[in-house]
Every structure is written in structure tokens, then in C-alpha cells.
């Protein structure tokens, strides 16, 4: 369980997150949706402890950061490090033996090539493979499907379902609603730094429709496309 109470975050005078209260339970997948700049990544950074914040975050396993696999929107890679070395680095950091890394290479990545030369999708898959090798209990996946090919998309969805079945907590952000509706138990709408809606699986279609109305509105008409 991860319990967030009264979490707020500001950058100078700019309030990014305001009084967030939410509880994440074992064996569930939570989707976080919101416009660009709504505060999703900031929220993830606060949960992981990368960003300082006010309010409290408690978790079943402490410290939370040592049991969390965080997939960043754009994973950072050093200029001359191979895929294999990257996985080892993340495992070493958590004192985990990576074992046979080739067995864990489910995305068939060229592990002995420099990671910086990978395509966007390959970089994402490598980062995911590395946090899976860490054997975390909690997963925060920021846009896990971005830039990833359709085959890997299917594979990632299957991985998420397996992790959920084994009792892990998964918090996922995505701009692709169809993938979230397939894997999530709950979807939370983040607007202006606060959760404004919580929707269960049965009402995902309604949420999607409402989001279209809110976010599209008459903006297309304003473009005056000819």
C-alpha cells in the first residue's frame, strides 16, 4: 500500500501540485491522466523522492524509493554505456544480482551496443527491462508506451498484467487512453495540480467521452482548418 496525504509541490510561486490525497493498493493498476503540464511527472518525482514536497507519503515497504521501479518519460543514458551495462548499473544500485541478463532481454535489444544509439522505443524498452530486473514491488511508469512498436506494446501490456497478478502496485501515466482502459483498475484525472475525478473500470468509456468534450471542445473549429 502507498498512502499519499496532503501532498503539495511548488516551484517558487508556481503551485504545481495542490493537496493530493490518494491511496494505492496492492495488486492494482492505477492510471493517471491529464494534459501536458498537469503535474503527472512532478507527482511521480515526488512519490519517488526525487523532488522534495510537503505532505506525507507512507508505504508498506520502507524506504519507498528502494522498492520502486521508476520508468521516466525520457530515460537518460550516458554516452558510452551499453544496454547490458545499464541493466547491471541499475541492479548494482539495489544490490541485486542481475543473473543472466540475456534471459531477461525479452525485447531482443542489442545489449552490447551503446544505449545512446538505440531508437526512442528501444531506449524505453531497455529502461523497462532494467527496472524489471531490479525486482521492485512498486512501479511508476511514465508514458511506458511512447515510441514503442506494436509488438512491444502488447508485451508491455502483458507484463503489467503479470505484475498486477503478483500483487505489485503499478501507477501509470499515458496519453493513449485505450491502453490505460485495458490495464487499469482505476483512472485518476489530474487537472491543475489536483485529482478532479476518480473513475472505475465500468465508467472508463464515460470518462473518455467527457475528456474529449473537455479537451477538444471547440478548439478544432478555432483552427479554421480548410
Amino acid at each position: 500500500m502507498i498512502h499519499i496525504e496532503k501532498l503539495s509541490k511548488s516551484y517558487g510561486a508556481k503551485q504545481v501540485l495542490s493537496n493530493i490525497n490518494i491511496k494505492f493498493e496492492q495488486g492494482k493498476v492505477y492510471g493517471i491522466v491529464g494534459e501536458n503540464g498537469a503535474g503527472k511527472t512532478t507527482l511521480f518525482k515526488c512519490i519517488t523522492g526525487i523532488e522534495q514536497h510537503s505532505g506525507t507519503i507512507t508505504a508498506g515497504l520502507q524506504p519507498l524509493k528502494d522498492h520502486t521501479g521508476y520508468l521516466q518519460t525520457e530515460p537518460f543514458y550516458f554516452s558510452k554505456i551499453t544496454g547490458r551495462e545499464y541493466i547491471r548499473l541499475l541492479c548494482n544500485a539495489r544490490s541485486k544480482d542481475p543473473g543472466n541478463i540475456d534471459d531477461k532481454n525479452i525485447f531482443d535489444l542489442p545489449l552490447d551496443r551503446y544505449a545512446i544509439t538505440y531508437s526512442t522505443g528501444m531506449k524505453k524498452k531497455l529502461a523497462l527491462a532494467a527496472i524489471l530486473a531490479q525486482e521492485n514491488q512498486y512501479f511508476i511508469l511514465d508514458e511506458p508506451f511512447n515510441g514503442v512498436d506494436i509488438q512491444s506494446n502488447i508485451l508491455i501490456t502483458a507484463i503489467i498484467k503479470r505484475l498486477k497478478a503478483s500483487g505489485k502496485i503499478l501507477i501509470i501515466s499515458s496519453h493513449i487512453f485505450s491502453t490505460l482502459s485495458e490495464i487499469c483498475d482505476e483512472i485518476h484525472l489530474l487537472q491543475h495540480g489536483n485529482f478532479t475525478r476518480k473513475v472505475y473500470k465500468a465508467d472508463f468509456d464515460v470518462l473518455e467521452q467527457q475528456m474529449k468534450e473537455i479537451f477538444i471542445g471547440n478548439k478544432i473549429d478555432k483552427l479554421g482548418l480548410k
Partner: peptide
């Protein structure tokens, strides 16, 4: 922008500073 050749290093067990630095 990319190099197909990967230079082996003896620092495999403990990434990353010496791996990157040695290759550079």
C-alpha cells in the same frame, strides 16, 4: 551519430564512470 563498435572495458562489474571515461 552512432558507433557500431563497442570498446570492451575491464570495468563491467561497476558501471558507469570508468566505463564511460575509459571509452572516451
Amino acid at each position: 551519430r552512432s558507433f557500431s563498435f563497442t570498446l570492451s572495458t575491464p570495468f563491467y562489474q561497476k558501471p558507469f564512470e570508468f566505463i564511460v571515461g575509459f571509452r572516451t
